[in-house]
């Protein structure tokens, strides 16, 4: 390689200092202007807010740990977990076959693969584009305030997300491993079950666990709209200014996430070791 082409490549890949400085000045300026533009005459922070925050902080020292309330917390936790589990079940039923379709690994021929990929990506992309809260409102309008509405609100967008992400995991199996299977006569299905799935199993489990974690949070939030669970109880407690009841509920949510984290890390380790 000649030295001139090397020099030229260096200049192209390095951002010009003047352009970068100008951009920085512009962005910092916009940031400062945005603050100056704030209307400070109105209550930027709601007047009672500081007081409420102080009470919330104080109640941290004296949470409501009465047996009656703990039973309510346990019940709300179980309801939230049930929503998450049911939602993830629907998501897996949609997402695992969806992942195989999106990845296109079973389709022969480049053109057929391109067509099926565009169609499936479009469909799942559409389902994924809406937040689970929007789905909840939609299903609520169709099905009324039933648990099924909450389950589908999690299951449909999560299934579409699983299809896309797990589909990519299936596509990214090392080429050599797949070629080795192919050279011993493996069909596309056999490539999938003997190669792509085992190779990606650790990542698949990790992502399912992460999505389950998200589903628990989503189920907690969805219960604000009237379905039972941690969010519903949290809403009630805040309405009644029972800040001492807020903390046990948040602790239950955090505890749940922590448990999922530990279990998923352990499962992943056994799969990969």
């Amino acid at each position: 390689m000649s030295s001139t082409s090397q020099r030229r490549r260096l200049v192209v890949t390095r951002p010009r200092p003047t352009a970068r400085t100008a951009l920085s000045v512009l962005l910092i300026g916009a940031f400062v202007l945005a603050f100056l533009g704030l209307d400070t005459t109105d209550d930027l922070i709601h007047q009672g807010g500081l007081q409420a925050a102080a009470r919330l902080a104080r109640s941290l020292l004296a949470p409501d740990l009465s047996p009656e309330f703990l039973v309510i917390v346990l019940d709300a936790t179980l309801v939230t977990v049930s929503y998450a589990v049911a939602g993830m079940t629907v998501a897996i039923v949609i997402g695992i076959p969806g992942a195989v379709i999106v990845s296109g690994v079973l389709v022969r021929g480049r053109r057929a693969r391109a067509v099926s990929s565009v169609l499936s990506r479009g469909t799942f992309g559409f389902l994924r584009a809406m937040h689970e809260l929007v789905w909840a409102l939609l299903f609520l309008a169709i099905l009324g305030l039933t648990p099924v509405a909450g389950i589908l609100a999690i299951g449909v967008p999560y299934g579409a997300t699983l299809a896309r992400v797990l589909g990519e995991h299936l596509q990214n199996a090392p080429k050599e491993v797949i070629l080795a299977l192919r050279s011993s006569g493996a069909s596309r299905w056999q490539e999938l079950v003997y190669g792509r799935v085992p190779v990606a199993s650790g990542d698949i489990v990790a992502y399912l666990a992460y999505r389950f974690e998200c589903a628990v949070r989503a189920a907690a939030v969805l219960s604000f709209i009237g379905l039972g669970g941690i969010g519903y109880r949290l809403n009630l407690a805040l309405h009644d200014f029972r800040f001492d009841r807020v903390w046990p509920l948040i602790a239950a949510l955090v505890g749940l996430i922590a448990i999922i984290d530990v279990v998923s890390a352990r499962t992943r380790r056994t799969l990969q070791a």
Binding site: V177, A186, G195, V199
Partner: peptide
């Protein structure tokens, strides 16, 4: 180019996939 997540047995059996 074996599949490290599978057992020795399954990697060996993969030789028969064509049949």
């Amino acid at each position: 180019d074996l599949v490290p997540q599978l057992r020795v047995k399954h990697n060996i059996q993969a030789g028969a996939l064509g049949r």
